[in-house]
Design a protein around this nucleic acid. Structure first.
Lengths: 250, 250
DNA sequence: CCCGCGTATTGATCCATGTTAACGCCCGGC
DNA sequence: GCCGGGCGTTAACATGGATCAATACGCGGG
């Protein structure tokens, strides 16, 4: 599969992501740019891969919002992660035969499928890239731990505040937010599925957050007028995101 | 630091764990056996490492039960993982500068501290071991996802049933259970902290599970008289544990 | 054999959040 | 400009689980 060439080197989301940890050599950058990648556009609310699949490739989110989720025996959905540009939400399938979760789009998405063979070769030849990819799966795990803590031990108000803080910081890190404003094409029902709350309750709390002046929304756009108070409300401390070399205005 | 030599090759928990995925060469086994390891006994309810630490070594659980946890701003505890023999609960610190969680003992524990240097060298020289360690952090993440789903979307009864199934399967995998019986030195308060429930409610549900004939307890010992029904009650499907080559009686 | 302490158990009451069911708004398609 | 569907909003009511406060049990130490 030929790779669709991207405008310039720094716009490759994988390079951008890895460079947030350390500087890549030209050789390493070249190896990434030469990865075979099948680029596909996907409509909203479509599954990219399904629980039980044994994919032979992983998907890199090039644009849009996706989510990782599981469905309960009773048919209830738990979203365990929101995936944004640069994320490789099923990188785990490189080492685990069977997917234990599904991944679906929330908004229109562009994703790049990269064969496992190519990734394995990349890792063998470039140990630093292998480490960086390992690291990125460890950051994902850190986010899981934080979400678990939110869902298990924080009340709805701070749970939502926390998630909004996280999304804003992560989107800033990939330049998909301008300061305290970002586009967040996530419905209240989807927030509920991520936070273990009902849609109705999410709605109630959103109104409280607005009334308290912590957030403002306009369509899918979120603005945070009082970043400090939102962080307090959510007990948000970004260190679990393990961001390094970030150029935050936040 | 000299390694305390262990009885025989197969009793090294790390070898046993890695061999559950693929067969190690003698060379690989030797490298693991030669890892420098400081062996320490730790009393119950002691922290092994704390959130915010930047350790230069990782700890391998050699015996006993430990847990990974976070404390909320309001001082509430969320246990995000139970650690048993063979687990390396802070392996992540090999690639992430700062720990985003604490790890503490539940029962008396023996742990082995292995310097990061030694682990990094091991990974460089033995790529298959590196992959296996990466894999094991991915399995940990899969367990996080499953717990999140339980906490977010399952009611208390099936949440507890699910966790008991998981512990029994994991303990069987490391030969720390005999069929449907195992020693589980975890208090009801600790179960509560792991499941996002109050101690009182955990107690009530345990009584329901006993009354329904799904479990029996005697001190810290758990017996599951009806494995099928317990699995149903917890919607338990072990595939997320990604066990391979297991010799289950279960 | 008794004491003391951590853990399990119980009962009463409260409340955060779920459920159900309308209704309304906005936006894209025709 | 109207229609339809998804999403947000509201209200009334139900409930799982939290909290608080005793009380009981089991076990190691003296």
């Amino acid at each position: 599969m030929a790779s669709t060439s991207l405008p310039d080197i720094h716009s490759h989301p994988m390079i951008r992501k890895l460079e947030s940890v350390f500087t890549l050599s030209d050789d390493e950058k070249g190896a990434i740019l030469n990865l075979p990648m099948q680029v596909v556009d996907i409509r909203p609310d479509q599954d990219i891969v399904r629980e039980g699949d044994s994919p032979s490739r992983s998907c890199l989110v090039l644009d849009g919002f996706a989510c990782t989720y599981k469905i309960t025996g009773e048919g209830r959905r738990q979203i365990v992660a929101f995936n944004i540009v640069g994320d490789i939400p099923d990188l785990q399938s490189l080492h685990l035969r069977m997917l234990d979760n599904s991944i679906g789009t929330l908004s229109p998405c562009t994703v790049g499928f990269i064969p496992h063979d190519a990734l394995r070769t990349l890792c063998e030849r470039h140990p630093r890239i292998a480490s960086a990819l390992w690291r990125s799966t460890l950051v994902d795990a850190a986010i899981f731990r934080e979400w678990m803590t939110s869902i298990g031990r924080r009340e709805a108000y701070s749970r939502i505040a926390h998630l909004l803080c996280e999304m804003l910081v992560r989107l800033n890190a990939v330049e998909k937010a301008e300061g305290h404003t970002c586009d967040l094409p996530i419905t209240q029902a989807e927030f509920g599925d991520a936070l273990g709350l009902s849609t109705v309750h999410v709605n109630r709390i959103f109104q409280d957050l607005r009334a308290d002046g912590l957030i403002r929304t306009k369509g899918t756009q979120l603005t945070v007028p009082d970043w400090d108070r939102l962080q307090e409300a959510g007990e948000f401390d970004r260190s679990y995101l393990h961001l390094e070399r970030q150029n935050f205005r936040l």
